[in-house]
Amino acid sequence: MNAHDSNPIDAPPFTIEGEDRPSRWLVTCDHATNRVPPWVNGADLGIAAQDMARHIAWDVGAAGLASALARRLNAPMIRSDFSRLVIDPNRGEDDPTLLMRLYDGTVIPANRRADAAERERRLDRLYRPYHRELARLAAAHPARAICAVHSFTPQLKGRPPRPWLVGILYSHRDERLGPAMVRACRAQGWITGDNEPYSGHLEGDSIDTHALSHGRPNVLVEVRNDLIRDAEGQEQWAGRLAAVLESVLAESGA
């Protein structure tokens, strides 16, 4: 599905799959791609190709996992189609990390030079259309539950290796699904982070905006990206996670 973008020369800033699928679940993928639109500094943020392939530019494997998971859940899925380094759709508009200038040791030259007008242009052509569609899909089911799919790198520069296979993130404002998901994943024998490797509460992020603010049950699933780099790994983890998500939602009564 294409974006209803005000500028017809833009490539769609989002992709939707299975809009008519009947599940309560909506699967989202905020950091699905490392694409830089051509109107952003000539499609070049000024960093090396190997850095654009790293986790700093996108969540490696997350798009394929989100798509496979949505099919298994018979649920719609929406993903962004622009790099988090262009503008981060999982941040509030007033978040200082919305437009990153330094990430995991890499300086982003095109962002260091970006002024307020450039920030607004990226918001208007990428960020806001994505969130409008996410809001529309979230509201399309009266009992919507949201599963946000992300991935994390096995090790940040200069940091110890991360032991988790999966991280389950959730906010203290809504613990209907998160803690039960942690227990269910650990019961499968997976080394599972409880609000690790990141905190599950961030004011203005996608879950805050589209789930917490509307009372919708929600969970954010992080999978270590070396496990989902290819289609085989993505399908394997989609099957594992779908079963756990369905059982946890059913048992929660949410």
Rank of each mutant, 00 (worst) to 15 (best):
L156F: 10
L137E: 06
A145P: 01
Y170I: 04
M181V: 00
W190V: 15
C185E: 05
Y170P: 03
R136A: 13
A148P: 03
L165V: 10
I146T: 13
F152P: 06
Q155N: 06
H150K: 00
A135W: 10
C147V: 12
G189M: 11
P154F: 09
A138P: 06
A187H: 00
K157L: 13
T153V: 12
L156M: 02
G158C: 03
W190F: 15
L137T: 11
W190A: 15
S171K: 06
R183M: 02
R186W: 01
R144G: 02
A148D: 12
R186G: 13
P154Q: 07
Q155G: 09
A135R: 09
F152N: 00
A139D: 14
G158Q: 09
A187I: 05
M181Q: 07
F152H: 08
H150V: 13
P154V: 08
S171H: 03
A184F: 12
I168R: 08
A139E: 06
L169H: 03
R159E: 14
A187G: 11
A138Q: 09
P142C: 08
R176H: 02
V149G: 12
F152Y: 01
R173M: 05
R162K: 07
R159H: 11
G167W: 03
A187Q: 07
A145S: 01
R162G: 02
P160G: 14
A187P: 09
E133L: 10
M181W: 15
V149E: 04
H150C: 06
L169Y: 02
A140I: 08
H141S: 12
V166W: 08
R136G: 07
L169F: 09
S171G: 12
C147H: 04
A180G: 04
A180V: 04
R162P: 03
G158L: 01
L177F: 04
P163I: 06
H150T: 01
R159T: 13
H172P: 03
A143P: 02
Q188E: 14
A187T: 03
H150Q: 11
A145F: 08
H141L: 13
P142H: 11
R186C: 10
R159C: 13
C185L: 15
P179Q: 08
